[in-house]
């Protein structure tokens, strides 16, 4: 008896759970040759709202974890990704129409970037922080702290490495994220969610929406409970308007980036979504 293939419906990832869109909508994901590949949930503004609620609730726990601990958790994602590389390679080959070697190289690069950023988790404070010189018997210390909830429009032309490159740096400092995956290439993002759900990343730290960035991004840009906006994959949207919306609630914003090295690994992507806290402390009591 022949086996009837069961196509997978990819769902959203919000608060550590995999809900369908509250709108009930799905859209077809086609492979590189235009054939039906899978159905993905088409998120609505209310899904974005729910995702922000989950992300906000997760901020206190994730940001209070020590950098050492966050580094371990991020490293663990890389470990799990390594174990499921065949699935990701397969998805990328189908979705992007690239060779297995190219897909494998992309998965390798994604794993490497998780590890690179994991290493920064207990080190970036030493680099970005400072013991300031003051003319008095005081310590004056500046330390970076996470800004809170970061909304991300992931790069639209990459399945996995673009997504990881945008999400990982925001997590390093202790932010939580709501990320809109690539509209045409969302499958690896949701498969990554299945990795995250079985890793040590607390629910709500990463929330993944699939669907139309043009529809969802404006709601996140204007959302008063979102602290920062990464428009790295928003080049095709009206991103100037998104920046204007973001300015209304004083968000930190990263502009769109194009090309294969979009969101290339850098310390700036970690430090960009932090706030500097400066404290005074007496050197000694007389």
């Amino acid at each position: 008896m022949s086996h009837l293939a069961v196509p997978k419906t990819y769902k959203l990832y919000i608060g550590g759970k995999f809900p369908r869109s509250e709108s009930g909508r799905v859209y077809e994901i086609l492979d590189a040759s235009g054939e039906f590949l899978a159905n993905a949930a088409q998120a609505s503004r209310k899904d974005a709202r729910d995702a922000v609620v989950s992300a906000r609730a997760a901020v206190s726990g994730w940001s209070k974890a020590t950098g050492y601990n966050r580094g371990q958790v991020l490293y663990r994602i890389a470990e799990l990704l390594e174990g499921r590389r065949a699935q990701f390679v397969d998805e990328i080959v189908h979705a992007e129409g690239v060779s297995a070697a190219a897909a494998m190289a992309q998965v390798d690069e994604a794993i490497d970037r998780w590890i690179w950023y994991a290493g920064w988790a207990d080190k970036y404070v030493q680099v970005a922080g400072n013991a300031n010189a003051v003319s008095g018997p005081y310590f004056n210390i500046s330390v970076p702290e996470p800004t809170g909830v970061v909304a991300i429009v992931a790069p639209q032309d990459s399945s996995l490495v673009g997504f990881v490159s945008a999400v990982a740096p925001a997590l390093v400092a202790g932010n939580t994220v709501v990320v809109i995956a690539a509209e045409r290439l969302p499958l690896s993002a949701i498969s990554l969610a299945e990795v995250l759900a079985t890793s040590d990343v607390p629910g709500g730290v990463v929330n993944i929406l699939t669907g139309s960035p043009a529809e969802i991004a404006p709601w996140l840009a204007s959302h008063a409970d979102v602290n920062a906006l990464d428009l790295v994959g928003a080049g095709a949207l009206d991103w100037v308007q998104l920046q204007i919306d973001a300015a209304e609630t004083l968000k930190r914003v990263f502009p769109p980036e194009q090309g294969s090295d979009a969101a290339a690994p850098s310390l700036a992507r970690i430090v960009g979504f932090t706030e500097t806290k400066t404290v005074w402390h007496t050197k000694s009591l007389i």
Binding site: R49, R56, A224, D225
Partner: peptide, 14 residues
């Protein structure tokens, strides 16, 4: 209420 008045989602800071 703030969402209805402003057209965008509000947050606990408000």
């Amino acid at each position: 209420r703030q969402k209805l008045a402003s057209g965008h989602y509000s947050g606990a800071d408000y």
